[in-house]
């Protein structure tokens, strides 16, 4: 498996889970207004163990266990942010966030606008997303693309330990609501993190692997499958560039278009369902902005149009995998037109 190499001498292996925890701990230390609130974040330690140990360190006021009231405590986070504190609201999974969708869309995303700019909502809402743990059709979906449809909020999808560690603080400093989607398959993943790692920008996509033949555009849990596919393609003489979107709203069009204009081919890998997906949006933008640079139709690898099934073989078959990414990339190259 490919990992991003950290060239700094002073760095250590860390899990994505611990990188998120470090980010929360650091934010809590830096700003007394910051607190974490959600189901089982305290005594239980977080349903994915992200906040384990933080209760002892910061106390029950700032590591605040909530009842199973997603709309209630998400709305409370929104109101608290309006009143000047900096809540981090944790929702166990994106599927549960639907119970809070009224608050996220009708309040967090709209209050600045409805109030003519008088009230901002600097809340951060974190949640797990994605399939791969055999949790079936009510715990495994990837709805971040849906959320990216909504003006007034920002959508982040950290895929690396650097971003897991660095995006939270930047999100907390943002004057608007920021939703952070953590793919469940990343929590146990390790990466090398510099000892002095800190806040990172949240307005730019990143080139995770430079290449010249085709641009593979992805985010979140699919990044690692895409990098694996790129390694395999290299063995077949195809040099793929991998773009990690990092931020799903607003999209960094400049980085995407510069890469596609260079390689003249694009494949988008998105764990959301194909219909009405973020991949569809990016495809459209490519067609709108760099159509004349393209040598082939844009390809897409998305989830199958099925609620995520429980059995492992069906679950794995329902979401993007390296094999499909390799195949879609070859197809894009195989259908190349004139020019190139």
């Amino acid at each position: 498996m490919t990992t991003v190499q950290n060239t700094l001498a002073e760095s250590a292996e860390i899990t994505y889970r611990d990188a998120v925890k470090e980010a929360i701990r650091d934010a809590m230390k830096r700003d007394p207004r910051v607190f974490l609130m959600g189901e089982d974040v305290g005594r239980y330690g977080g349903c994915y163990a992200v906040s384990k140990g933080l209760l002892d360190e910061f106390g029950a006021d700032r590591i605040r266990d909530t009842p199973l009231s997603e709309s209630g405590f998400t709305g409370a986070g929104i109101g608290a942010a309006m009143a000047g504190v900096r809540p981090i609201v944790e929702l166990m999974t994106v599927n549960f966030s639907l119970l809070a969708l009224d608050q996220i869309l009708n309040n967090a995303a709209t209050i600045r606008h409805m109030s003519g700019g008088q009230f901002g909502v600097p809340v951060v809402i974190r949640m797990a997303t994605g399939a791969g743990r055999q949790l079936a059709a009510q715990h495994s979906h990837s709805l971040e693309g849906w959320y990216a449809h909504i003006p007034g909020i920002k959508i982040l999808a950290p895929a690396t330990v650097e971003d897991a560690r660095g995006m939270l603080w930047t999100a907390l400093e943002d004057p608007d609501p920021v939703l952070i989607f953590e793919n469940v398959m990343l929590y146990n993943r390790t990466g090398s993190l510099a000892a002095d790692a800190g806040a990172v920008a949240i307005d730019k996509a990143a080139i995770r692997r430079p290449g010249s033949d085709v641009t593979l555009i992805t985010y979140g849990g699919s990044l690692w499958k895409t990098l694996e596919a790129a390694d395999r393609l290299k063995g077949e003489g195809i040099d793929a560039e991998v773009v990690d979107l990092r931020t799903l709203r607003p999209l960094d069009d400049a980085t995407i278009m510069a890469s596609v204009a260079k390689t003249r081919r694009a494949v988008i890998v998105d764990e959301g369902w194909r219909s009405g997906s973020l991949a569809a949006e990016i495809t459209t933008r490519i067609v709108e902005q760099v159509f004349w640079e393209l040598d082939a139709p844009v390809g897409r690898v998305c989830s199958e149009e099925v609620p995520i099934p429980y059995p492992a073989h069906l679950e794995q078959a329902s979401i993007p995998q390296a094999d499909q990414i390799v195949a879609a990339t070859k197809q894009t190259l195989g259908t190349m037109g004139s020019g190139g």
């Binding site: 709309s71 209630g72 405590f73 709305g75 409370a76 929104i78 109101g79 608290a80 309006m82």
Partner: peptide, 13 residues
């Protein structure tokens, strides 16, 4: 929809 907001405003105070 305003009730959870009120909870949050009061929580901050």
């Amino acid at each position: 929809g305003g009730l959870p907001l009120a909870i949050g405003l009061a929580l901050a105070d």
